[in-house]
Amino acid sequence: MTSVSPGTALRADAMRMLDAWRAPDPQQDRLRREFLRHLESHPDGMWRECAAGHLTASTIVLDATATRVLLTLHRKIGGWLQLGGHCEPGDATVADAALREATEESGIAGLRLSRPWPVQLDRHAVRCHRQGSWHLDVQYAAVAPPGARHRISEESADLRWFPPDALPESADDVVRRLVAKALRF
Score class of each variant (00 low, 15 high):
141 A>F: 00
21 W>A: 03
163 P>A: 07
45 G>D: 06
134 W>N: 06
173 D>R: 13
36 L>G: 05
43 P>L: 10
175 V>Q: 01
27 Q>A: 14
9 A>G: 15
94 V>I: 08
162 F>L: 12
133 S>A: 15
181 K>S: 08
70 L>N: 00
122 D>C: 05
138 V>Y: 02
71 L>V: 03
122 D>W: 00
8 T>N: 13
156 S>N: 07
163 P>D: 03
32 R>C: 04
107 G>Y: 00
124 H>T: 15
115 R>A: 14
51 A>F: 06
113 L>P: 02
184 R>W: 12
33 R>C: 15
83 L>D: 02
120 Q>K: 11
50 C>R: 01
61 V>A: 03
94 V>L: 05
71 L>T: 01
57 A>M: 05
80 W>Q: 01
160 R>W: 08
79 G>W: 10
168 P>G: 07
113 L>Q: 03
46 M>W: 05
28 Q>T: 08
109 A>F: 11
164 P>Q: 06
180 A>D: 02
140 Y>C: 05
172 D>W: 01
105 E>K: 04
123 R>K: 13
54 H>M: 09
174 V>S: 12
6 P>E: 01
67 T>W: 11
45 G>V: 10
122 D>N: 11
66 A>G: 12
128 C>N: 10
76 K>E: 13
103 T>C: 08
92 A>V: 15
115 R>I: 04
81 L>R: 08
166 A>S: 05
131 Q>I: 14
9 A>W: 03
33 R>P: 14
87 C>R: 02
89 P>S: 12
159 L>D: 02
90 G>H: 15
148 A>W: 00
72 T>M: 13
42 H>C: 12
98 A>Q: 00
44 D>V: 10
160 R>S: 07
20 A>G: 13
10 L>Y: 02
73 L>V: 06
27 Q>M: 11
16 R>G: 09
87 C>D: 00
40 E>L: 14
59 T>W: 00
171 A>H: 00
141 A>L: 02
179 V>E: 00
176 R>L: 08
132 G>K: 03
145 P>N: 09
104 E>Y: 07
159 L>C: 00
48 R>E: 15
160 R>V: 07
168 P>W: 08
142 A>Y: 02
67 T>V: 10
133 S>I: 06
32 R>M: 03
2 T>W: 10
125 A>E: 11
92 A>N: 10
102 A>L: 03
104 E>H: 12
22 R>K: 13
185 F>W: 12
25 D>M: 09
122 D>L: 07
29 D>T: 05
37 R>P: 06
179 V>K: 01
129 H>S: 07
49 E>V: 13
115 R>E: 06
22 R>P: 10
172 D>E: 07
81 L>W: 09
5 S>I: 10
141 A>G: 04
108 I>D: 00
113 L>W: 03
9 A>H: 07
87 C>N: 06
99 L>S: 03
25 D>L: 08
181 K>Q: 13
70 L>K: 00
48 R>D: 10
133 S>R: 05
149 R>K: 11
53 G>H: 00
27 Q>T: 14
138 V>N: 04
77 I>C: 11
171 A>F: 01
67 T>A: 14
155 E>G: 06
29 D>C: 10
117 W>F: 15
